[in-house]
């Protein structure tokens, strides 16, 4: 299959890669760009482990084609921290023990960040339903919700 040249921005850096038009954005990120933060949990848009944002919109990167990234701004978990300084969500996930095996964590962080970008003060219920597309088999979610709400509170104070 002919490869298509894609130019896109990932976490603020312009990158280029060649993609088979059938390849998902998830595979392009992982295999072409070596960014393995987004994970494949299902490949069918049902688990959220592959969550990234495209032009600010939360998507399952397993359901987006790599070629669709052309000219877009992609954000992944690797871009959340500023250098050594963790994003408040990242810090709160560690503090609240909101992770166990950790493989759902990158997707949940990206999804939570997207939530707080559009709703800085979510109710517990809003947070729970927003994150309902991000499966976690380990934690039972309680600490995840607490971490998200705590980070939201801290970020609001910070403003």
């Amino acid at each position: 299959m002919t490869q298509i040249h894609v130019t896109t921005t990932v976490n603020g850096d312009e990158v280029e890669f060649l993609a088979d038009p059938r390849e998902t954005l998830l595979d392009c990120l992982r295999d072409k760009l070596g960014m393995t933060g987004a994970k494949e949990g299902c490949g069918t848009g049902d688990c959220g482990a592959c969550s990234v944002t495209v032009d600010g919109r939360l998507v399952c990167s397993c359901l987006v084609l790599g070629v669709e990234a052309e000219g877009k701004k992609i954000e992944t978990v690797e871009g959340m921290a500023e250098g050594e300084k963790l994003h408040p969500l990242q810090r709160k996930f560690i503090e609240h023990a909101a992770l166990q095996c950790g493989i759902c964590t990158p997707g949940i962080l990206v999804a939570a960040k997207a939530l707080l970008a559009q709703n800085p003060d979510p109710t517990e219920e809003e947070a729970r339903y927003w994150l309902a597309g991000n499966l976690c088999r380990c934690t039972g979610y309680d600490k995840i919700i607490r971490a998200v709400l705590d980070a939201a509170a801290e970020m609001r104070e910070g403003v």
Partner: peptide
């Protein structure tokens, strides 16, 4: 906290 926590939240574990 979990020893791998900082790696998990950064997506590099």
């Amino acid at each position: 906290p979990h020893d791998s926590g900082p790696l998990h939240v950064s997506g590099v574990a």
